[in-house]
């Protein structure tokens, strides 16, 4: 990749393009980027890509459609069957097909004007503009038929996409906050390693326990932290958490026992408490990651249902012309 003068050769052109405006000012002020954490990252959201170019394009598209809908002299109702209806419908259908192609496009990354970011930005804003364009195409004449089915599926896709934008906008921040502790960021692999280490310690510490207590602790060790339904994942609530139950059971048992120094239960309890905290973090992590993925489980399959309904809609119009 070509490097621009005045920048470290490791920075890519794409990075340079996005950082220039803020960086030149900082350099004049004599500020230096030294540590990784303080570095002004090159991140420019797809929402504000190119000063919101696609926001503007989509806005103009909506406005023109709306004005045409209001002012164009049409012979009768604003059905899809008028010249304006056919025009809006053709635009909408073309947009839908093009928007779907993001799935193909994203598998081949290229930089520059037609970078994936540009595509994503256009995908988001043109997709949102469909709310206006395609709804005007319906002429607000909705019913229980294939035509309204296509419209409704499109709206489901758009709304799920809006959830996606919202999640991508807010969740990464929450994700990294959740991963940081006093020792820095924890990777997903480290999360598992931490749990393994704790399990080993619990296992060792629990050796002196009675059969009943050991069985309770064993339950905690045997439980897969990644187990649980989609509902558990999304809510981060695990009512059947064996670790919590083990901690509670042991604490209850200990409450009725005379205090002795060096009670193995004390050690196990402390370790279980740590494991609980660690599980809580893991589960928050899982919850955020699920939300980041979950909307796509609606967005993508319904898109294909929409393509099918759209084909049926178009074929039916020409079939019973």
């Amino acid at each position: 990749m070509a490097s621009l003068p005045g920048l470290e050769p490791t920075e890519t052109a794409a990075t340079a393009e996005d950082t220039t405006s803020t960086d030149t000012r900082k350099r004049k002020l004599g500020l230096r980027r030294c540590t990784r954490r303080n570095k002004v990252t090159s991140h420019d959201s797809f929402l504000s890509y190119a000063n919101g170019r696609w926001w503007k394009v989509a806005g103009v598209l909506c406005l023109v459609s709306l004005l045409a809908y209001i002012f164009a002299p049409l012979p009768a109702q604003h059905f899809g069957g008028t010249w304006l209806g056919y025009t809006l419908g053709t635009i909408s259908a073309g947009l839908i097909v093009w928007l779907t192609l993001l799935g193909v496009r994203k598998r081949a990354m290229t930089p520059g004007t037609w970078s994936l970011k540009a595509w994503t930005s256009a995908h988001v804003y043109l997709g949102l503009s469909l709310i206006v364009v395609a709804t005007l195409h319906t002429g607000f004449d909705l019913g229980w038929n294939v035509h309204t089915l296509a419209w409704a599926l499109m709206m489901i896709v758009i709304v799920s996409g809006m959830f996606g934008i919202w999640f991508y906008w807010t969740l990464p921040q929450a994700l990294s906050e959740n991963r940081y502790d006093e020792d820095g960021a924890v990777t997903e692999k480290q999360m598992i390693e931490q749990l393994r280490s704790l399990d080993r310690q619990i296992h060792d510490a629990a050796q002196p326990l009675t059969a009943e207590d050991a069985a309770v602790v064993e339950k905690s060790l045997e439980q897969d932290p990644f187990d649980g339904s989609i509902w558990n994942r999304v809510t981060a609530r695990y009512p059947n958490c064996a670790t919590r139950r083990a901690a509670a059971t042991l604490r209850e048992a200990r409450a009725f026992r005379p205090r002795v120094a060096d009670d193995p239960l004390d050690r196990v309890d402390a370790l279980l408490t740590r494991k609980e905290a660690m599980l809580a973090r893991l589960r928050r992590h899982l919850r955020l990651k699920s939300l980041l993925q979950l909307w796509l489980y609606v967005h993508v399959p319904v898109t294909f249902a929409l393509l099918a309904a759209l084909s049926a809609h178009i074929v039916s119009v020409f079939f019973y012309w």
């Binding site: 993508v300 399959p301 294909f304 049926a312």
Partner: peptide, 17 residues
């Protein structure tokens, strides 16, 4: 996703086409 995408699409094509 792939399975439900195909499933939905085929269902719609059968019912509506």
């Amino acid at each position: 996703k792939r399975m439900s995408a195909w499933g939905f699409a085929i269902l719609v094509l059968i019912a509506c086409l």
